[in-house]
Every structure is written in structure tokens, then in C-alpha cells.
């Protein structure tokens, strides 16, 4: 096993999967010669040719719409959206077609496409390069969503998404593209969708998060060391959601803090809280607390740290729960 950065693990997954399955195509803005603005697709065009990795016009709805047609012609497209917020023009195709077309054919045709994109804030970028848009995707029937937090999972979840018979959106934490580094299995490596990862075992409180919020939750757990034993649950897959892992952890600790960087209202943390309210309320020793971004546009980057969930805010939430 070699150590890889998160973005290198994504690139590795694309190489391995395209090698394995000749029906896989990679398309998006600047994914070819440049290898993507984050280099996630570097080397693919050189290795597999311009027919299997191509630069598209700058048109996100067109990219996803043609990917639907490519599926119908028998291809398995992997689409890159250059940035989180750049994917919004494609929501029309996603909601109206990607999530519905299989149903529309009463299951006769499959749309095994993957949409991957860098997401999230904290990178000192211009407006609309910082969003955490998972809720839009999770809320769309017919579409699955995965968000890795580690290099190994970035590779394994992307491979699972590409192999899945349904459309899958994979959000990659761009903040950790080049900060997270770990040993990544060589060759084929698949992390099944719908299986959470217990990032840290603990007994007093469960910090539930995904993607870029996992390293943050781990730092909060460190900060609480000696004061409380924190369990950190990395959901990895928002749909399907590993409810068993979620309920098992919370029944053990009796306390839950859910962390997301997206705005609070109707965000995924609300879904997690609702599942706990419906299925674990008698195991809980206090309210389910959320630490989230706020219901405002993602701010000017000089003050973005005030918006992003911080170690201090997570620690504060955990302390409030422990004191209750």
C-alpha cells in the first residue's frame, strides 16, 4: 500500500475503474488535457484516449443531460462538476430526469451514472466555491449520495458509486484534497454504499458527521479527552443511510451531536435528528444537538471561519449535552 493524498486516491479510483470497465467515460469541464482544476482526472485522457475522457462545453445541465443519453446508449458516465455551487444548473436534469428515468421505464433501463464534485468551504475562495450542497441531492428520489472523509474511502466510495446500478453523487471534501494523507489499498478497492465507519470509539457522546467535518469532529474529541469519551461516526453514505450503525452508537452513548457545514434548516443533520427521534428517543439522555453552518449565504472568506462549524462549537455542544 502506498500513501496517497485524498485527490490522488480519487484519481487512482478513476484509473482502476476505467481499466476494469471499458464502458466508463469521464466527462466534464477541463477534465481532459488539464486533468481537472484539482487534477482529480489527471492522466486519464493520456491513458484512455480522448474518446473516454473528454472536455465538455461549459454547460453543467448539458453535461448531465448528455450523460443521461450516454447511459441510454450503453455507457457508464462519470461526470465532474467543477465546483459544488457550479452544479446547480444541473439540478434541473438531476431532479427531472436522472432520479426519475429508471422509474419512468418501469425499471427496464438503468442510469448508472456518477456525479462527482469537490465541495465545502474553508479554502479562502471566491463566492460560490464553498458550498455544501448535499441536501439538494439527498432530497432527490432515485439518487444516492456518498461523501468520503479519508483517502481510502474517497477511492472505495467512488469505485462503489461507479459500479452502482443507480445514479450516485459523490461529494469530495476539497479542503482535504491535499491535507488528508493515508495508506490507500492498491488496485480494486470498494467501500460499499450504506455502511458508516466508526472513526473513533467512545462511551459518552456520539459526534455524527461526514466529509470535511470528520477531521473537525476528531479534533473536538481530542479536545474533550479526559472530560468525556467521544465516539465519532463517519456516515460516509447519506443515502442509503446506515441507520443500524447510527442507532447502535447512540444507544450506547445516549447523546448525539450532528455536525454539518451546510446551512441548518432542513439540512442533513435534521434528517439524522429525525431518525434518532423516531427510532432512538428512549435511548437518549438529552436533546439531539446540531452544529451547522448558518442560514445565510456562505460569507466573505475573510470571515468564513465564523460561519464554519468549529472545534469550539462542537465542544460547546457536547458539554451542554453532558451537563444536561
Amino acid at each position: 500500500m502506498a500513501e496517497k493524498l485524498l485527490v490522488e486516491a480519487v484519481n487512482d479510483a478513476l484509473h482502476v475503474e476505467m481499466e476494469r470497465d471499458a464502458s466508463i467515460l469521464v466527462l466534464g469541464e477541463d477534465v481532459g488535457k488539464l486533468g481537472g482544476v484539482f487534477r482529480a482526472t489527471a492522466g486519464l485522457q493520456e491513458r484512455f484516449g480522448a474518446d473516454r475522457c473528454f472536455d465538455t462545453p461549459l454547460a453543467e445541465a448539458g453535461i448531465l443531460g448528455t450523460a443521461v443519453g450516454l447511459c441510454m446508449a450503453g455507457w457508464r458516465p462519470v461526470v465532474e462538476m467543477q465546483y459544488d455551487a457550479f452544479s446547480y444548473p444541473a439540478l434541473d436534469q438531476l431532479i427531472n430526469h436522472v432520479g426519475r428515468y429508471r422509474w419512468r421505464t418501469r425499471g427496464a433501463m438503468s442510469f448508472p451514472l456518477t456525479i462527482r464534485m469537490p465541495y465545502g468551504g474553508g479554502v479562502r475562495a471566491p463566492e460560490l466555491h464553498d458550498d455544501s450542497p448535499e441536501t439538494y441531492y439527498v432530497h432527490t428520489p432515485g439518487v444516492k449520495v456518498a461523501i468520503p472523509s479519508t483517502p481510502a474511502d474517497a477511492k472505495g466510495l467512488l469505485a462503489a458509486a461507479i459500479r452502482d446500478p443507480d445514479p450516485v453523487v459523490v461529494l469530495e471534501p476539497k479542503l482535504h484534497y491535499r491535507t488528508a494523507k493515508q495508506e490507500v489499498p492498491e488496485g480494486e478497492h470498494v467501500v460499499p454504499l450504506g455502511e458508516a465507519r466508526l472513526a473513533r470509539e467512545g462511551t459518552d457522546v456520539t459526534l455524527i458527521a461526514y466529509g470535511a467535518m470528520i477531521p473537525l469532529a476528531e479534533r473536538a474529541a481530542d479536545a474533550l479527552e479526559g472530560e468525556a469519551s467521544c465516539e465519532v461516526l463517519d456516515l460516509r453514505s447519506l443515502k442509503p443511510l446506515d441507520e443500524d450503525a447510527l442507532l447502535a452508537s447512540v444507544s450506547k452513548t445516549g447523546r448525539a451531536v450532528v455536525v454539518q457545514e451546510a446551512p441548518r434548516v432542513a439540512g442533513f443533520a435534521a434528517e439524522v435528528a429525525a431518525v434518532l427521534a423516531e427510532k432512538a428517543i428512549f435511548d437518549l439522555q438529552g436533546p439531539v444537538l446540531r452544529v451547522t453552518g448558518y442560514d445565510v449565504p456562505y460569507p466573505y472568506w475573510q470571515i468564513e471561519d465564523a460561519y464554519m462549524p468549529s472545534v469550539e462549537r462542537v465542544v460547546d455542544a457536547a458539554r451542554r449535552l453532558l451537563a444536561a
Partner: peptide
């Protein structure tokens, strides 16, 4: 919204 589908199909 099906125009890109037809185009993607033809291209594919």
C-alpha cells in the same frame, strides 16, 4: 430537457 438526452444518445 430531452434535447441533451437525444444528443448524448447520438454521440454515445
Amino acid at each position: 430537457t430531452h434535447v441533451p438526452h437525444a444528443v448524448g444518445f447520438a454521440w454515445g
